[in-house]
Design a protein around this nucleic acid. Structure first.
Lengths: 257, 257
DNA sequence: TAGTGGTCTAGACCACCTC
DNA sequence: AGGTGGTCTAGACCACTAC
């Protein structure tokens, strides 16, 4: 066991006290000056230790207020039920899910006609730089920034489904609208990854240091070809994704409470 | 537009140069002393800027060597094919996947008989603190720590399938072994989340600052009850998860290359 | 041995919040 | 006004890596 640097000792001690409940979720930590005295370290050293905990997502700081233990209220998204036409839902699935969890959804919306970036063109099987419609959502739950969602539709599809360029929301949901035109999404391929946010993402989602993003992409297929590509960027501290596959009757039968 | 602090300017400038390829993946950055001269800032200020990029996962540092741009070689795991008995595979799915990607798998293995922690007991629908078998894997790809996997089996199942307590790997795979005893996994519920690693996780996976973990839990069900609970912890910078759901013939027909 | 990053200090000044 | 964190400096010494 080698000697730990002092700032590590500070971080470890505080981490232990947070874990064992000395400082519970949302509560304030002692000030830098107090910690400096307690650990017999300079203010800068204490700051290094606190910085570690911040970048590990355990605490956050605000000027003039101090450091506080992060609290997490996660939202669970069911990705396998999402967009499932067998499951009855009106309008878009996001609002439904949030409302049914007893929380208040809010979103801003934007439609653009752009060229298709290379990696997206690849998924949609169209030429790079060809025309596409981008529908972009910025989503909030109880006024906290929650996620952004960008969906690309290939040009050929937009020709068949002109309402995709309408600036407003499509009341019955895009999946239903396309379905009414005989275009069914019969399958999808999802990819999920995580990383630290870019400055742009940190700004849009109001993410502090030490919180990763969860990125979920979905390529939707009709019987013949890809019809959409969706990129959703979540705050990693507030979201979990769920997939339910196969026969889960064993679970569900006891959950009627 | 308000004035940015100097360490932010340093971080932003370096980030731009990394993005535009001035410093490509794996290449070294100028030393702190050089950057200090270039930005007319003290060494500590430059360090703050570099520290930002480290905690954003963009660069890494090592004593005596300097700072280098992180490079990512991601591995894609297909979670919906995983454990699918319709898909032929011998032995465990992880080795198969890694080998077929042209890379070298390696794992250490451990079996324990323990009591079931509360949140796991809930998933397995058994009493908290009741007996369970834990099978634990520490996995490497090309000698780089890749993931850890812990699977809990409830006691009643172990009575029926005693080989679950064998310390070694089960050659044909546990899913097949259970299947041969008439215990079929007919469905599963997955949950995926991300966060910064705990010190323990950082140690096992040799994760530096600024890299989140991707956590994947799966509860497997037989027709009557849960038969296993698996927690897999991935290095977030090296792994992506994929789910394929429904009819994807439109994608697959052109992918025979 | 020379150059790199890692740790630590002491002190200055600024920006923000609460009272 | 007084306390909080945020930024910045100058300098010291240590630990690791390369040659």
């Amino acid at each position: 066991m080698s000697k730990q640097p002092k700032y590590q000792q500070v971080a470890d001690a505080l981490r232990r006290e947070i874990d064992n409940g000395t400082y519970g979720p949302g509560s304030r930590l002692p000030s830098e000056a107090e910690l400096s005295a307690r650990f017999d370290a300079s203010r800068n050293t204490v700051r290094s230790g606190l910085n570690l905990l911040v970048s590990q997502g355990l605490i956050s700081s605000s000027q003039g207020l101090g450091y506080a233990v992060r609290k997490h209220e996660v939202f669970k998204l069911n990705a396998s039920r999402f967009e499932n036409l067998n499951f009855p839902q009106n309008g878009d699935a996001y609002s439904t899910d949030v409302t049914s969890a007893g929380r208040r959804p809010h979103q801003t919306f934007r439609v653009e006609v752009t060229t298709t970036p290379g990696h997206i063109a690849e998924q949609l099987k169209v030429e790079p730089e060809s025309r596409a419609v981008l529908r972009f959502c910025h989503r909030f739950v109880d006024d906290v920034p929650w996620s952004t969602q960008a969906t690309y539709y290939p040009d050929w599809l937009v020709q068949e489904a002109p309402r995709l360029t309408e600036p407003g929301d499509i009341a019955e949901g895009t999946t239903r609208y396309l379905s009414s035109l005989g275009i069914e999404q019969v399958g999808y391929a999802d990819e999920i990854l995580t990383r630290m946010p870019t400055p742009e993402e940190a700004r849009l989602l109001e993410i502090g240091a030490g919180v990763p993003v969860l990125i979920w992409t979905r390529t939707g297929y009709s019987g013949e070809q890809p019809i959409r590509y969706t990129i959703t960027t979540f705050r990693g501290d507030l979201n979990r994704m769920n997939y339910e596959i196969g026969d889960l009757s064993a679970r569900d039968e006891n959950e009627a409470k």
